[in-house]
Computed example of a mutant assay.
Amino acid sequence: MTHSEIPERMRASVLLGTRELAIEERPVPKPAADEVLVRVGAVGVCGSDVHYFREGRIGDFVVDAPLVLGHEVGGVIVAVGEHVDPARVGHRVAIEPQRPCGRCRECRIGKYNLCPDMEFYATPPIDGAFTEFVTIQSAFAHDVPDSVTDEAAALLEPLSVAITSVRKAGIVPGSTVLIAGAGPIGIITAQTARAFGAGEVIVSDLVEARRERALQYGATRVIDPRTENPADLDVPIDAFIDASGAAPAVQSGIRAVRPAGTAVLVGLGNPEMTLPVEDIQNREITVTGIFRYTETWPVAIQLVANGQVDLDSLVTGRFGLDEVEQALESDTDPDSLKSVVYPAR
């Protein structure tokens, strides 16, 4: 696409209120000096998009004005700002959907995910990618090889969540990890744990079909927490990663961790829950959360390009821009794992 072929207007799916979407025509954004303009090829549907659609908020993040959802993005660069190498035009990229300030303490120490002035796609008031074109700083548009599809490029974002979780869990070759929840993040985390060398990956989920699916994606063993207590497993659990957000799963998972092990909380659940403090204290368990990611895209690209993590087969639903509502509601189907929106479809 040459500069002269870039349209002046584009279509966007806009969240106007709770469960209220509309297609709007908007100007195609102009890239700032350090930005690139990306024609969006594929956008994954995330649980946070669903929360904003159904509830209008996630914790302190409240949708109080029209908002474009979608932050898992793959596409191609079609224009660049004046400070960006023009040779980048035509490059296929995966977008790291954030813009930190680069000046605060968190940014200076390399924790830019915690920047208090972060601008993050599809987080009020920053628009996301359920649209035809988006801009992003050039450094946050990561080149992907042709062996990585647009869908996989988009899903490098949830893979980045999994990489951050596995890093925080301290997974090394031979580790035993327990993962609660066999939804998209749990499934991707199971694959990532295996790629990092985990010797045993145990996945817990209430739904039999999801447990069976986990066995196809990295899990070496699955359990039904209603009939098998994770704390009674016959192997020491080095790390527990919660991808469910369910208080019972968090509590039992922490109790299952060996002394001096680690519990990482990833799932979106209740803002407050009771934790087994005595277990945490007496066995010196490290309990931590994660908030997005830093410096994960290069690793994610390699894991996919090398075939260590399979993202393409996770896609169970494909939707056009006029079908965003169906995409956001697709999680009600027990067979759904990951839905993708194609704005140009």
Rank of each mutant, 00 (worst) to 15 (best):
A182W: 08
T274N: 07
D117M: 09
E228W: 01
Y112I: 12
E132N: 07
L268A: 11
I126D: 07
G70P: 02
E96Q: 14
R99N: 12
P125W: 09
G307I: 08
L328P: 04
G245C: 07
I301V: 15
R210T: 11
A42C: 11
P27C: 07
G128T: 03
C46E: 02
V89P: 01
T164Y: 07
L156V: 03
P248I: 14
I6T: 11
V84C: 01
L311F: 09
E323R: 10
P173V: 03
Q281H: 07
G253M: 03
T296V: 03
R57I: 00
G90F: 08
P145A: 09
V287D: 01
L275G: 00
L178G: 04
S252Y: 02
Y52H: 13
R167S: 06
F61K: 12
Q216G: 08
Q216C: 05
V14P: 04
G186P: 00
R54I: 04
D234V: 00
A190N: 07
S147V: 14
A231K: 03
L15F: 09
G289D: 09
A260Q: 12
P125N: 11
V309D: 13
E35V: 03
M273D: 05
R213D: 05
D117N: 12
I254K: 00
I223A: 02
E272K: 05
V38D: 06
Y112M: 11
F140A: 14
V62E: 07
G41T: 08
P97H: 08
I126M: 12
G181F: 05
G181E: 12
G289Y: 14
E8P: 00
E284M: 14
L265E: 03
R210Q: 13
F53P: 00
A33W: 00
V73M: 08
V235A: 14
E72R: 00
S48M: 02
V264M: 10
L265A: 07
E325V: 07
T294G: 00
V235Q: 11
E228T: 15
I109N: 08
I179F: 01
R213V: 09
A247F: 02
G74Q: 05
A22M: 09
V144G: 04
E157T: 02
D234Q: 02
E200S: 08
L233Q: 05
D335M: 06
W297Y: 15
G186L: 08
V50L: 09
D333I: 08
A214S: 08
I237Y: 05
S13P: 00
G81W: 05
A12I: 13
L233K: 01
S244G: 12
H91A: 13
G174E: 14
L268H: 02
F120V: 15
G253Q: 12
D312R: 02
Y342L: 10
S160C: 10
T192P: 00
D331C: 01
